[in-house]
């Protein structure tokens, strides 16, 4: 344990650098993936359900393609630039958000939509004022999944030499140094837990009392 501590102190500069890079990848790609996922989820929910019945299973198969393969392919196309990593991670981050947005929106009970329409809301107003708020808990659930996944996938960035906490892990694997692996893995795990907790906090703040489960009668 003390060896680990000494190692950390010796490499603190490098570790900080790696964490910052790692977080940068996570934030940018999750943000992009979130926007994309919500937009595509909304679009898919407006189409007849047959589209989703075909598309969603295809997407989940796609999601099982290992990130390594995907980053490798993009690397061949785009080269060793951060955008390669960000595009790859953003696409992976899109799936959970897309899927949860879709399920959230299609799960909105017909009575609310009929009421909205009957009140004289346009389709856009119905979406923004009723459907999206009702789907919000589900959408944020998707964001949480994406974020936690992306923290671990971002480790792959160092595979093409682009830094992040993966640097420690890969070097550790190559040089058979457990200390190095742990130095990369533990902060990544902590980041995942902390970001997850932050999103739970967000969930509690943005979801109105009326939508929370087990609200007082």
């Amino acid at each position: 344990m003390s060896a680990f501590w000494e190692f950390l102190q010796a490499n603190s500069q490098m570790l900080q650098q790696a964490i910052v890079t790692h977080l940068f990848y996570v934030f940018v790609s999750v943000a992009a993936g979130f926007v994309l996922g919500v937009v595509l989820g909304i679009a898919l929910s407006r189409l007849p359900s047959q589209y989703a019945a075909v598309l969603l299973p295809v997407l989940s198969v796609f999601q099982t393609i290992p990130g390594v393969v995907f980053i490798g392919l993009l690397f061949l196309q785009l080269g060793m630039v951060p955008i390669t990593v960000i595009i790859a991670l953003a696409i992976y981050a899109t799936f959970p958000v897309l899927k949860n947005t879709y399920t959230g929106l299609t799960g909105v009970e017909a009575k609310y939509i009929e009421a909205a329409k009957g009140c004289g809301m346009t389709r856009f107003q119905t979406l923004v004022r009723v459907e999206l708020p009702l789907a919000l808990p589900s959408i944020i659930g998707g964001l949480r999944l994406s974020t936690v996944y992306t923290v671990s996938w971002a480790v792959l960035a160092s595979m093409i030499g682009l830094g992040g906490l993966g640097n420690f892990v890969y070097q550790g694997v190559e040089s058979n140094n457990d200390l190095l692996i742990i130095t990369g893995a533990i902060p990544a795990a902590i980041i995942a837990v902390v970001l997850g907790a932050l999103i739970d906090l967000l969930q509690r703040h943005v979801v109105p009392r009326g939508l929370r489960k087990g609200a007082e009668k």
Binding site: K111, Y112, V130, P133, L134, G210, L211
Partner: peptide
Amino acid sequence: IQQIGLFPNM
């Protein structure tokens, strides 16, 4: 409407 349909987010 019969199902009331008050918006639960409001």
